[in-house]
Nucleic acid binder design. Sequence first.
RNA 1: UGGGGCGUGGUGCAACGGCAGCACAUCAGCCUUUGGAGCUGAGUAUCUUGGUUCGAAUCCAGGCGCCCCAGCCA
Length: 576
Amino acid sequence: MDVNDPPKPFDSPQGRPFDDTQGKPSDFIREAVAEDLRTGRFKYVRTRLPPEPNGYLHIGHAKAFLIDYLVAKEFGGQLNLRFDDTNPTKEETEYVNAIKEDAHWLGIDWGDREFYASDYFDELYEWATLLVKKGKAYVDDQSAEEVSKSRGTLTEPGVESPFRDRPVAENLDLLERMKNGEFPEGSRVLRAKLDMADPNMVMRDPVMYRILHATHHRTGEKWCIYPMYDWSHGQNDSMEGITHSLCSLEYEIHRPLYEWFLDELGVFKPRQIEFARLNLTYAMMSKRKLRKLVKMGIVKGWDDPRLTTLRGLRRRGVTPEAVRDFIAKVGVAKTDSWIDMALLEACIRDDLNKRSPRRMAVLRPLKLVIDNYPDGQVEEMNAVNNPEDPPAGTRKVPFSKVVYIEQDDFRETPPPKYFRLYPGNEVRLRYAYLVKCTGLIRDPVTGAVSEVHCTYDPATRGGDAPDGRKVKSTIHWVSAQHAVKTEVRFYDRLFTVERPDEGENVNEIINPHSLEVLTDCSIEPSLAEEAKPGDKFQFERIGYFCVDPDSAPGKLVFNRTVTLRDTWAKIEKKQG
RNA sequence: UGGGGCGUGGUGCAACGGCAGCACAUCAGCCUUUGGAGCUGAGUAUCUUGGUUCGAAUCCAGGCGCCCCAGCCA
């Protein structure tokens, strides 16, 4: 299987079913779900994906989405996609479409079970009037500031609203008129009547509806009041027959309210279970901060390859399989944790290694002249497309007297343990010949090495020496007369600190070298002919690269997805 | 000085009263026509104090540390 084939959403790179029960991850959520089925608390499993359409998905969402999707799938249940569109001032259709696209890319399948919180506005309103009639909700005329002030603090109880004991009929009338748009924004809210002295502040008469004279992306001008999350989410879960409402830790303190509403209404009550959200080192997950990076122009857009948005990862060349593998390895627990970016990179390499066609590309070219090779001769060398995947076959690579090699692959004076080209040393040009360095030419002005010379051993065609002699290094090359010029973009971590999401000083922690553009790269001709945007390759000995959509006919642009593991870099680093 | 939650190698996740294991990372070696991949091995952990028990990461009590909550955001 080639990485450039159309994705098969639920096969791992090995071709095993994605949710194979062999080594199926077990965690406290799956245990709870299994127990609920065993005890008969629920007869089936249905989860929900609850994105708010106010931004693009990032890898943190991938964790939540995959948990929701896989739990449903593993227990033979269903997944509802339900957009949490209760705040028309922040939400847009553009995001709805982008979220669906990204979720599909990830491999999430919700069939035709696509819903919106706004689908339930009518019924939800009816349920609100039920609570009003029970004396469990009231219209509060206080201003936002007054409500906030009277809520109390973490250690002091709040004070009850003067409107708290309004007669039911008056509440009903006022609520109706709020709905009809008779009052200005901010003038009144509907509140649940709980306990202003509750130590859990969520329970101090939470707001259910606020007045918003806004145009909703789906309901248009129909509504002048919109439900708050707490009043919408659980009720929607109930209406949809969701059994397990899986969410992040910060909603733990909302669970008593979630259950209170459902109990007061006397309706089907799903179980809310909370887990820790994903934190990734050197990455930013907060939508607010992500938006800031885009707005300030620090990145080029939501799909900038340096971002861990799903679109960014995709453009960078990361596969959905790698993301899924990563999320599976991250696990599910309630501990606040930071996952090492190195784990994501390992998952990316692991997937790409097995599937990427290999090609030769010289990113920082240095001219190597083979003095004893016949002028004008061209040979077609046989190269393996992917040693990890023999069925991927072989290809021909043209070879001639002058080739480009990587500047890094030549040293005039080699440091200890350097095995590549240096005067007097013999190396293998991959799939071609053994060559021995005989000298170099300098630029008369700068003094820099402008050309390296060598001789080749005609008996070593293909790279094998008939006399059995070994060389310690194999380097890649591109025939100068056949080379096609391309642009290559290197990406590095966007931030200089490990936990960029923690502070506020986004500006001060930007890595100024997060993007490096190389414009004088040479690739082998076969690559120039075949590569289309989105295609992924391994450039031998360098890393994994993906064709960027900025590419134009005759002018390819590659993104470096991730480097290969580089043992030499470590040795060099140790040597100082 | 309220309430809720969480503490296991460097980073994560297991072990559900019985030899603390796995992955990533690190280090060493083998192998190699990618200093890739693969293979082998090593080091490093149960927040703390006490209790229960033949036996505690696990159960109990206290302490300490970290996270979340005072939006008419979700």
